[in-house]
Write a protein that binds this DNA or RNA. Sequence first.
DNA 1: ACGCCCGCCTGTAAGC
DNA 2: TGCTTACAGGCGGGCG
Length: 291
Amino acid sequence: MGWSRVPELPEVETLRRQLEKEYLGKRIKSAQLKSRKYVKVAKPGKKKAVKTDASPKQMNDALAGGKVKAVSRRGKYLIFELDNGWWFVVHLGMSGHIVKATPKRPPDKHTHVVLQFTQGNDLRYFDARRFGECFVVQAEQGDEVLGHVGLDAINQPIPWQMLGELVAERNSKLKALLMDQEFISGLGNIYSDEVLYLAGLPWDRPSGSLTSNETRRLSRAVGEVMTEAIKHRGTTLEDGGWRDLYDEVGEHQEHLAVYGREGEPCRRCRTPIRKVRISNRSHYFCPQCQA
DNA sequence: ACGCCCGCCTGTAAGC
DNA sequence: TGCTTACAGGCGGGCG
C-alpha cells in the first residue's frame, strides 16, 4: 500500500479540539517562516480570493503578539482567530501535519512554519508534498476569503428536506456531490465512500433521482459517519499517515465499512467489497448493499 | 452545469 | 542491487 494521509473533517476536528485545549488564550511570541513561498497573504478578490506570497516579516508582523481567541474550523480549513485582528488559516491538504513541538522532538523534514508562544510549547507545521495551504488574512475579510467553503457537514447540518431540494437542483453523481466542498464541506475520498455505504447508495446515482427516503438516509449517514470518526480521533491507514497534535494515530480505521477493504467481506452481507477507479481516485463499495 | 483530466508534490513499493 | 514506474489524492484550472 502506498503513502497516504488524508485529513478530512474528522481529522481536522480532532486537531481543532486538541489545539483549542492547548493554545486557547496563549499569546504568539514569534512566527517563523521556514520555507519560501508557502505562507500567503489573502485578500478578497473580484471572483475569488487573491493570495500572494508572504515574506517572513509580513507573516511575523501579522501573527506575533496576537493571542489565540478561538480555534475554529470550516470544512477542512483550520482557523486560528487572534485578538489582534488577524486569522491564521491552515489547510492540511494531503500531507500537512501540525504537532505540539516538545523540546525533545527532533526537527521534522519539510517544516514550513514554527509558532512560538510566550508560554508553553511551539507549534510546528510541516507538509512534505506541499498540497496544503497556509495563509494570513484580516479577520473582517476572512468570511469572504473562505466564501467558497460550503455548509459544514457537522457545524451546520442541513435538514434533510432542504438537502433534498439542494440535491435535486444539482443533479450530479452522488460521490462527486459529497466531495464537492462548495456543496457540503468536510468530506473527502474515505468518508464519502463510508457515507454512501451507510446510506446504501451507489456512487453514480444522479442526485436528482433520490426519493425522500433515500435523502433522509444520506443526510443521516453524513452525521453518523462524521460523529463516529471524530469519536475515534480520525482514520490512520496501515501505512501510518494521519497523526494528531500529540503524534498519535486515530482508531477509526478499525471501524471502516468499505474504504481499503477490497476483497474483504461486507460487514452486513458478506459479499466481497469491490474497488473501482472513478475519475482517477479509488472508490470502495459493496455491490450488494449499494445496488 | 457537469464530467473528466491534468499538474502540483514526495515517499513508498512493486516490477524489471 | 539499483533504476524506473505507478500510486496515493485535495484542489484549482481548463476543456469538451
